[in-house]
Design a protein around this nucleic acid. Structure first.
Length: 105
DNA sequence: AGTGTGACTTGGG
DNA sequence: ACCCAAGCCACAC
């Protein structure tokens, strides 16, 4: 397994309940500033076997945009249950809920 | 090997 | 605030 993949998994796993991170943010902390799309791919393929809290990873605009409408609904529902609020446009206030991991992972 | 495709991001208009 | 174009990188065909 690639070290980048491993770091992404660890980072996502460490996102506490009630907080979120963006794809780009995870990628940057994992060492690839431009690897947002790889983070997407990794979550897509690894979230099952590693039990990752993929719903706590969203895009830089604070919104949830998934191909699958049902999964979209589930993600939003899960986040709301963890105490995260959505504004009238269905967006999350990143200033409030963004999780800042420690520098050295 | 070339092309298309994302659960993306950023900058500009 | 919204829309668009360009940049991005791994993977599937």
């Amino acid at each position: 397994m690639q070290p980048f993949t491993e770091r992404v998994i660890n980072i996502v796993k460490d996102i506490p309940e009630g907080y979120v991170m963006t794809y780009g943010q995870v990628a940057e902390v994992a060492g690839s500033k431009r690897g947002a799309r790889q983070v997407v791919r990794i979550l897509h393929t690894m979230s099952d076997k590693y039990k990752l809290p993929w719903h706590r990873v969203i895009n830089a605009q604070g919104e949830i945009v998934m191909k699958n409408e049902e999964a979209n609904f589930i993600q939003k529902h899960n986040l709301q249950q963890e105490g995260i609020d959505f504004d009238v446009h269905g967006r999350i206030d990143l200033k409030k809920y963004r999780f800042q991991p420690k520098i050295n992972q």
